[in-house]
Design a protein around this nucleic acid. Structure first.
Lengths: 264, 264
DNA sequence: CGGTCGCTTGATAATCGTCAATTGATGTGG
DNA sequence: CCACATCAATTGACGATTATCAAGCGACCG
């Protein structure tokens, strides 16, 4: 991987570059405060691993270009993709307690770009910059909320619902990254999509032809054109009766109901 | 729910009570610092809902007694249990970005106890207490790491592996709570276990009899005695060839491999 | 005592995984 | 530059893990 330590043309300085990839709804002061801590910008090529599970927890990363996958490793040799990362997203946020990285981070494109932040910049002992800590807290918390939804998806949705959910999520991430969300190139293989959704490569392939046949999307190799996002929304909720018949899954009748009486 | 606002017998003060349920590996100063922010202790009864999804994000909760479930709600009416919470665990950590609660929190026992912390105590604008923020960051990050593992479990493990994983996780949580991890009472129904594992009630029931038949655990109604944790560990990794034949699941060959060459 | 709830067990079936063959794209070496 | 190998993707046939449907049973509660 290519590390760019310090000297750079002016308007291409790391801080400036990184600040441009921070979330949009952020005060200029905070953007500057965050960007000031960039340790390096790193460029990877497809297939290269930025972080291995278990490595000492020294940096977190902001995607500034391309795309990445997070991979959770099982005890033997299995592994599963647990999320895809697009520009403006932070990666590697699960290690603040265990002090080591909890997933592999692998580049899906050439090039793939990240800004590297030393976590000691957020250490309570070395900084009084509470606003930065609070900001980081929000990002980690958002990652948790996203992971909770993914749990729901994996446990309760049918294959058709999962694919619909995947494309809608991808569209959302592409928009946030400032990219075209209607015509785009998937940076990951069918197998990686399947791993993320808890399905096999073959099932993903069949689902994609299903989308094509029903005019929901054009799919040619890695290129996708979303034609009917409305149908995706409908299928995400209802599934599609006519294909791989929807699986209602373990549905639970919402936490019983409220409390019965408010003692004292 | 029963709220205990302030006055209490001395050694039963909220702060003291709460501090006793904080993680063990915490400096006394931090414990005191955290405990000082307790707004109230709340007592719930089985089935009562502490928090509804979407409620304004004003508090987070530390379990001090009993048990809870977090429930993720789908767009229509489906719902899924995404985690169980035992004493010494924080709940409701997924809302710092969206400013609203992301799950329902429901009591599973009578009584069920929590300490309530106002999130403005961790607000960067109202506090300079960076150490508290950093601590909170660790808890949220740990929750994220746990959710990532749950994703792996839901997507890659067979039913037998899931049940084994569930019991080992429960043992771990019971130990951390200072309770007996070999003989205990499950506070949740089969259906709730199934929801968490992405299985049906019936499958969970069959898996439990399977554990009983193979001498791995005694299971009588809600009471469980773990006899062979070693077998649980083995089944968590390998599955059990002889039962609901193990499903290898979508296994991915670990992020290709390393990077090929380190440019410059 | 009747009714509901949680649990168990059995029979059946379906969603999706497995296995296999084929094609096209990519890349490498001779 | 082409043969060859490898990989990604598609499609079909088949099978299995697990869901669904159904019945029964004990416990708890009003």
């Amino acid at each position: 991987m290519k590390r760019h330590p310090l000297v750079e043309p002016f308007w291409r300085s790391q801080a400036h570059f990184c600040a441009g990839s921070l979330p949009v709804d952020l005060s200029p002061e905070l953007k500057a405060g965050v960007a000031a801590h960039v340790a390096a910008t790193i460029e990877l090529r497809k297939g290269e691993t930025l972080i291995h599970t278990g490595m000492p927890y020294q940096h977190i990363y902001l995607v500034t270009g391309g795309a990445f996958k997070s991979v959770q490793l099982g005890e033997d040799g299995q592994s599963q993709v647990i999320s895809f990362h697009w520009p403006r997203e932070f990666m590697g946020l699960g290690g603040f307690s265990r002090r080591s990285h909890t997933t592999d981070l692998v580049a899906l494109t050439t090039p793939a770009l990240v800004c590297e932040f030393p976590i000691h910049a957020f250490d309570a002992r070395t900084t009084v910059a509470s606003p930065l800590l609070a900001l980081l807290l929000e990002y980690v918390s958002e990652g948790l909320a996203q992971a909770e939804y993914d749990q729901f998806m994996l446990g309760s949705l049918s294959a058709t619902q999962k694919i619909s959910s995947f494309f809608l999520q991808t569209q959302h991430k592409l928009r946030r990254a400032g990219m075209n969300a209607d015509v785009f190139e998937l940076p990951m293989t069918r197998e990686e999509i399947g791993s993320y959704l808890g399905l096999t490569m073959e099932t993903v392939s069949r689902l994609l032809t299903h989308l094509r046949v029903h005019g929901v999307a054009e799919v040619d190799k890695k290129w996708v054109r979303i034609l009917r996002a409305d149908i995706l929304h409908a299928w995400q909720v209802d599934g599609d009766e006519r294909f791989l018949g929807h699986r209602p899954g373990p549905v639970l009748g919402a936490g019983h109901c409220d409390f019965r009486k408010d003692a004292a």
